[in-house]
Write a protein that binds this DNA or RNA. Structure first.
Lengths: 135, 135
DNA sequence: TATAGTGTGTATATGGATATACACACATGA
DNA sequence: TCATGTGTGTATATCCATATACACACTATA
């Protein structure tokens, strides 16, 4: 079992939080369906090059949110997700991230036109990368 | 002396880093000119509702980068900035932030169209807020 | 020109959060 | 049953943020 999660050692944001945000996204966006068996704590730890305890914390937090269900000795599974909650989460999160980026850009004295140009350039490139890089 | 810096207690990112990024931006974007006297450690700490030691760390880091110069008993001043370095920093930082946001949005299964719509909506609103809120 | 007062940056110690390694308990299947 | 894989609990090291006490530089004033 492999998950499309990337962590960035350089960022000052804690590891467990980076992983949480992305795994939560995978579940709420429907890419991980109900009852799917997630990778074991250790397996995911190796894959992400971090410790098992950090992954354990992520699973624990998401279980407290009701997003996953864990059974000792067996493994960790994706729980059912309220269908309505999905689209809300998607747009809320995306809006949050974009707002942060725009605010940072404006504070750096970028003009609206500059930001629009950068955004167009970036989204074109990312979209292309997405089509190719599904290996 | 007041600085347009905002910190978000909710974010898992360390306080000192939030402050560093924004103050570095103010200097490199030219909003704070060479030889400007920055607020004292204590004054800025009160204004940001954090401890003086945290602000001290920010000043120390930025001094190590050569962006500011500090003299005990006197205060902390903005150092000279390579004019060429300014525009590079602005665009690099803005690109970084936008890339992160777009990547997050795509991972959340947002379509390119959705992201473009969100971006337009956000930047219009922020731009309006900026015009008014210069009080 | 002394000197006391105020403002400045600096150093040390404590509490909490983060990340890790290691040893333990449970569940499944040969 | 027992071997292997799973999650779980305890102890340790490091980083983040703070409070407190200290050392230095300017300045008013006698």
């Amino acid at each position: 079992m492999w998950l499309p999660i990337r962590i960035d050692e350089q960022r000052p944001e804690p590891l467990y939080h980076q992983i949480e945000v992305q795994l939560r996204g995978l579940i709420l966006s429907g890419q991980l369906k109900e009852s799917t068996l997630l990778p074991s704590i250790r397996e995911l730890a190796v894959s992400l090059k971090c410790s098992a305890i950090t992954v354990r914390r992520v699973y624990q937090d998401l279980e407290n949110e009701g997003l996953i269900r864990t059974r000792q000795g067996t493994g960790t599974f994706v729980a059912g997700v309220d269908t309505i909650a999905r689209d809300e989460h998607r747009l809320e999160r995306a809006t949050e991230e974009l707002e942060r980026a725009v605010a940072a850009g404006l504070q750096l004295q970028c003009t609206v036109a500059e930001l629009e140009a950068l955004f167009q350039q970036i989204i074109r490139r990312k979209a292309e990368e997405g089509k190719e890089g599904l290996t």
